[in-house]
Amino acid sequence: MRREEDLNERRVCIDRLRKAIEELRELQAKVHQCAERSRLVDALADARRAAEDLSQSLPVGLDPSDLVELTAVLNDYLERLYAPFQRTEGSLKIFLGNLRQLLNDLPLEPPQLRELRSEVERLEVWKRTQHFPAPAMWEMERDLPILGRKLQAMLEVLLAPSSDTVAGPQKRRQKPPVDPHIVDLKRLVREFYEDITRQGRRGDIHEQICMRLANHDRPPNVKWRSLSWPHALVRHSKAVRTWISKAIHQAR
């Protein structure tokens, strides 16, 4: 009876973990959009400060009303740009709160689960989301893919057959585990592709994707893994373009 209860609890944890991974992917897309906006926000904030400073030091006889009006327009636009940031930060706090409860409910064995949880708790986004100030968007964009890989690894540990759940003297042959790094990398490529096409940008899409990937992880076991994505595109154009094209169309 106890064994059956343990198996049922394990199945529930697996379902909850799968759902959390899907929610995290949606959250990553929102964070990526906010990170793209952050550069515009920084530039406009600099322009607003410059307008405010200039309005205080105009030569006598010049009317500062235009600068005051410009500052007001910039303030209004910045507020609208910041709105998704606040919603995304709120969504992240809720997600991580629910994830904490899920991790508390996971079994303590095997030891890999404890090790993975320890790695999750060392992430900056995990530590700082509950405190002020909240992590910056670029920190979220950096840490959430790592968090996703850790959750995927936890799921694989839970799905792996244990000695007391495999019937018969021999275990069934398991499919090779999916590399979570590759899964995350292909997802990121598809997000970049969708963002570029949605914005209607012209030019070489593969080149634009490589510029965005920059020094992001490269696939293992490829000749160009030691090069940045832009350099790899120059030196191994056909191979890089083929890999990106397959990643784009894999789930389409």
Rank of each mutant, 00 (worst) to 15 (best):
Arg25Cys: 13
Leu227Gln: 03
Lys150Leu: 11
Gln199Gly: 10
Pro111Met: 02
Ala167Lys: 07
Ser118Asp: 12
Asp179Gln: 07
Trp229Val: 08
Pro230Met: 06
Pro230Arg: 15
Ala72Thr: 09
Val166Trp: 08
Thr71Cys: 05
Glu194Ile: 12
Val120Arg: 02
Glu69Ile: 01
Ile205Tyr: 13
Arg252Asn: 12
Leu99Met: 11
Lys93Ser: 02
Arg11Gly: 02
Ala29Arg: 08
Ala239Val: 04
Arg2Met: 08
Met1Gln: 08
Arg149Tyr: 09
Pro84Arg: 06
Leu113Cys: 12
Arg114Thr: 11
Gln101Trp: 07
Glu4Pro: 10
Ser38Lys: 06
Arg218Gly: 01
Glu52Leu: 09
Ile94Cys: 02
Glu124Ala: 09
Arg114Ala: 14
Glu139Arg: 12
Lys127Arg: 01
Glu4Ser: 04
Asp42His: 03
Arg18Glu: 00
Phe132Asn: 08
Glu121Leu: 12
Thr165Met: 03
Met154Ser: 11
Val41Trp: 04
Ala153Arg: 12
Ile146Asp: 00
Val12Glu: 07
Leu27Arg: 07
Val12Trp: 09
Arg16His: 00
Gln208Glu: 07
Pro169Tyr: 00
Val73Met: 10
Ile209Val: 14
Leu123Trp: 07
Gln208Asn: 12
Asp76Glu: 13
Asn75Asp: 02
Leu213Phe: 01
Val240Glu: 06
Ile205Gly: 14
Asp105Tyr: 10
Pro107Trp: 11
Glu139Lys: 14
Pro133Ile: 14
Gln112Val: 02
Ile209His: 13
Leu67Pro: 13
Glu119His: 08
Leu158Ile: 00
Asp6Ser: 08
Asp179Lys: 00
Ser237Glu: 00
Met154Val: 04
Leu58Asn: 07
Lys150Trp: 13
Gly97Trp: 06
Ile248Thr: 06
Asp6Cys: 10
Pro107Gly: 10
Leu233Gln: 00
